[in-house]
Design a protein around this nucleic acid. Structure first.
Length: 546
DNA sequence: GTCACCGAGCGGC
DNA sequence: CTCAGACCGATTCGG
DNA sequence: CCGAATCGGTCTGAGGCCGCTCGGTGAC
């Protein structure tokens, strides 16, 4: 059995050093010492999850449950917890502190082990029905009662899915490789194909990594796209042909079909087949044995419907009831396996040819794409994609293999913000983690006559120095102080960009923005010069008309 | 005892 | 999904 | 020609809105 205390101490050591190499070395040395089951558990936890992706059980222990249990354990009040949180900016640190002042410290403390804790958490994840929530809380309570402060800190961080030790996926794979003398590339490949690093680590130790391969009904990581900075970018290394493919605004899915089985996997590798029963027949018909990649969209007869419509069908348990109201279309753009032949390393041009030869029917369609050789045609393709009601383009190198889990230059997405608005900041909140102590999160509004109506919040886009400056400013211009949240004088104007406007009852304007990000502080504008609700409404109508 | 609603958790972008 | 910042290896520049 | 500065790739961390499901709870 492997002690949780050692696991925690290792994570703590890793978090202390800024050097990536040293992080990897520290972790590798620890992993090497672990027995099999502990190794599996440790590696899964190090990915910030208790269960591997795709596991049908979900832990369902979140922020609130943890806070409730910590309060019971320590006798702390809501106010104390929130003050501690303001100080630390991290629930794990709060847990460490509160566990240290537990009311009833058990006389005999069984040391926590990775194996033991995991067995308990597994049971919690499997709980269903009446009393399930209470059972989950009880499991957590029992674990925290046994835990030392440092152990509690990392238990809570595993539960919140955020280790904050400056080591995640890539470095974790390196650590596993270093621990067992495997090639980093081999570990990475195996991880991307199985997405279960715990399992991969065990294989690495046994020297069985090479066996990893594409298998039916073993979903693997999706290939991702980087962001296109400039439309000329794809042609920078001289003239060449790239594929300009429509970027559909929907949900990415991986389709596995073999025998009489068809399964759709989401990006988290969860099985979402049952939400889309009408796709089964056309997918059976598409071919006898294949793995394909595509985007599932809500479909309005001739063109795509907004993403929100599709959400109504996601994870829906009674799909037949809404299937008629929210029809979908599945646009396939890649094929990774045909029969027993692995196509991943073939160039996209060839994969696309194989895909085009398949038997498309009904709602299963071929994604719209065309080869282009210059910037002018690329721009034209972008306009056409927008005409068809799509978000923009994904520009793909025709010579590129399929690289699971990679977000590189082989695929580049090109979309444009819908617009920008000049908004007035009316509230500011303290950030989390490394933003603890900074007012880094801004609630903003637009004018409705002479009233300010909130349209959203934004965080990203500002540089640390600007956040520091705004923090000082807002501390001096706070109207009402709610602790974590401060209502501030409407003085600061921000320019925010966003991809869409949605109707929403979250804010009093009746609207919200999709993907808001701060472009800059408009020091040159007075609050009165900020945008109006009419402008927001106009944008909302404009995007609907496409 | 039933039902409607709410909050929490999760995963989609 | 977004963007900023940190680290690290590779490349370029200056002495 | 070598060491220093800089560049680019890759990774990490922080936080936004939407809609579904489930368990718990309060109203009737």
């Amino acid at each position: 059995m492997a002690r949780w205390a050692e696991f925690a101490a290792t994570l703590d050591a890793v978090s202390r050093t800024p050097s990536k190499r040293e992080k990897v070395t520290l972790l590798a040395a620890y992993l090497r010492r672990l027995p099999e089951e502990a190794l599996r558990v440790a590696c899964t936890y190090l990915t910030g999850r208790v269960l591997p992706p795709g596991d049908p059980d979900k832990l369902q222990i979140g922020w609130s449950t943890i806070v409730e249990v910590l309060k019971e354990l320590s006798g702390a009040t809501d106010r104390e917890v929130s003050e501690l949180y303001l100080r630390w900016g991290d629930l794990g640190d709060v847990a460490a502190e509160l566990v240290a002042r537990r009311r009833a410290v058990p006389l005999f403390r069984e040391p926590l082990t990775l194996e033991g804790a995991h067995a308990q958490l597994r049971r919690a994840a499997a709980a269903r029905g009446k009393g399930a929530a209470e059972f989950r809380a009880a499991v957590l309570r029992a674990l925290l009662e046994q835990a030392q402060p440092m152990e509690a800190k990392f238990l809570v961080r595993v539960l919140t899915g955020d280790l904050r030790i400056g080591l995640k996926e890539g470095l974790l794979q390196e650590a596993v490789a270093e621990a067992f003398g495997a090639r980093p590339g081999a570990v990475r490949r195996a991880d991307l194909l199985s997405s279960d690093l715990g399992e991969v680590a065990c294989q690495a130790r046994r020297g069985e990594l090479a066996a990893a391969s594409l298998r039916y009904f073993r979903p693997f990581r999706f290939m991702l796209a980087g962001t296109l900075a400039d439309p000329a970018e794809p042609f920078h290394d001289g003239p060449q042909e790239v594929l300009a493919e429509d970027k559909y605004d929907g949900v990415r899915v991986q389709v596995h079909r073999l025998g009489d089985r068809v399964t759709l996997y989401s990006r988290t590798l969860d099985d979402v087949t049952d939400s889309f029963p009408e796709l089964r027949q056309p997918l059976l018909q598409l071919g006898p044995a294949y793995i394909a990649d595509g985007e599932l969209v809500a479909w309005a007869g001739q063109r795509p419907a907004p993403f929100q419509r599709l959400q109504q069908r996601l994870r829906r348990l009674d799909p037949f009831q809404v299937a008629e109201q929210v029809p979908v279309a599945l646009f396939l753009f890649d094929v990774l396996k045909l029969g027993e032949q692995d196509l991943m390393d073939l160039p996209l041009a060839e994969r696309r040819q194989r895909l085009q030869a398949m038997e498309f029917s009904g709602p299963v369609r071929l994604a719209s794409a065309r080869p282009v050789r210059d910037v002018a045609s690329l721009r034209e393709a972008f306009r056409d994609a927008r005409e068809r009601g799509n978000e923009g383009l994904v520009v793909k190198r025709l010579d590129a293999p399929y690289r699971p889990g990679r977000r590189g230059g082989l695929w580049l997405k090109w979309k444009e913000p819908l617009a920008t608005l000049d908004v007035v900041v009316v509230g500011a909140e303290y950030g989390h983690g490394k933003r603890a102590g900074w007012l880094s999160d801004y609630t903003f509004a637009v004018w409705d006559g002479d009233r300010l109506r909130v349209v959203g919040k934004a965080y990203s886009g500002l540089q640390d120095a600007e956040i520091a400056e705004l923090t000082q400013f807002f501390l001096h211009h706070t109207v009402r102080d709610f602790g974590h949240f401060k209502a501030v004088e409407p003085k600061v104007v921000l320019e925010v960009a966003f991809d869409a406007v949605t109707r929403s009852d979250r804010h009093d304007s009746g609207y919200a923005l999709r993907f808001p990000r701060i472009v800059r502080v408009r020091a040159d504008k007075t609050p009165r010069e900020a945008s109006t609700l009419e402008e927001v409404e106009a944008l909302y109508r404009q995007q609907r008309e496409g």
